[in-house]
Computed example of a mutant assay.
Amino acid sequence: MKISIITVCYNSAATIEKTILSVAEQTNKNVEYIIVDGNSTDSTLEIIKKHESKITKWISEPDKGLYDAMNKGIEMATGDLIGILNSDDVFNNESVLEEIANFHQKNDTHASVGNISQHKENGKIVRLYSSKFWSPEKLKIGFMPPHPSIFFKKELFNKFGNYELGFKIGADYELITRFFLKNNISWKYSGITTTAMLVGGLSSSGSASYSLITKEIQKALSMNNIQFSPLKIKGRFLWKIIGFLRK
């Protein structure tokens, strides 16, 4: 089982080397590693070229944003499974992709969802973002599994399409809604903590971001003809606290 890992980057010189090495150090060697660079102007390309032997395919050209770049990577991918590794993230350990391959070989499922750990720049872990209690129904109240923990069969993109470009930070939510709710793909919780993610990404940067993603969640659900309560989505932080207390 071949796994395609896609890293999208732009001016990522401060972090991209750790990301590349994280893939290269995986015990599973049946991995296709694809980097899609958005025509960086810093030393990102120098670092990519330095480690070119560790990368299966890479391109550097202008794009229409993060999700356009992801779509380019998906079109280049030839693996059975596709996973996303952001350019400032690393795999949680050296055996992650071996564990993912074993999981999918034992479980006939379209997708697996897992966990990620979130850490500060000093390495201190501040949160384990788990999918253990997630289900597709929770998309209707504003909750999705951590995007980097999901591994999709390549055939899903061929059948149901790629990331929609009409979103700023919510195209992953729309795609997950389209796959899991609208088309009812098969999935299973893997229990694998796939990724160590640096806190402070585009979708986790304050109240303005919360407002934007709230609008984009509602847009994603509407596009896929999913009924939902706008009030529950706006108050999803409260629902999260209530769910935590119940557990």
Rank of each mutant, 00 (worst) to 15 (best):
K2E: 14
I5W: 14
T7E: 12
V8D: 10
V8E: 11
Y10F: 05
Y10W: 01
S12T: 00
K18C: 12
I20H: 02
I20A: 04
L21R: 01
V23N: 13
E25A: 04
N28K: 14
K29Y: 05
E32H: 02
Y33A: 09
I34W: 14
I35W: 13
S40K: 12
T41A: 01
L45C: 13
I47F: 07
K49D: 06
K49R: 08
K49Y: 04
K50F: 08
K54A: 14
I55F: 12
W58Y: 15
W58L: 06
I59M: 11
I59R: 04
S60M: 07
S60H: 01
E61A: 07
Y67W: 08
A69F: 04
N71G: 06
N71D: 06
K72S: 06
K72A: 03
M76F: 12
M76K: 15
M76H: 11
M76P: 14
A77D: 03
G79F: 12
L81E: 04
I84F: 15
N86T: 12
N86I: 14
D89A: 10
N93T: 09
E99T: 01
A101K: 04
Q105I: 01
T109K: 05
T109S: 02
H110S: 14
H110V: 14
H110N: 10
A111S: 07
A111W: 05
G114T: 03
Q118S: 11
Q118P: 04
K120F: 11
K124P: 05
V126G: 15
L128T: 15
S131L: 08
K132N: 01
W134H: 02
L139A: 05
K140M: 05
I141D: 15
G142K: 07
G142H: 04
G142V: 00
M144R: 08
H147R: 11
I150M: 04
E155A: 10
N158T: 11
N158C: 00
N162W: 12
Y163I: 07
A171K: 01
A171R: 06
L175P: 13
F179G: 07
F180T: 02
L181G: 06
Y189P: 10
I192R: 11
I192W: 09
I192G: 10
T195M: 09
M197E: 15
V199Y: 00
G200F: 02
G201V: 12
G201L: 07
G201D: 06
L202P: 03
G206V: 10
G206T: 10
A208V: 08
S209N: 05
L212Q: 01
I213F: 14
K219R: 14
K219Y: 09
A220K: 09
A220L: 13
S222I: 04
S222F: 03
N224M: 08
I226F: 15
I233K: 13
W239A: 14
K240R: 09
R246Q: 06
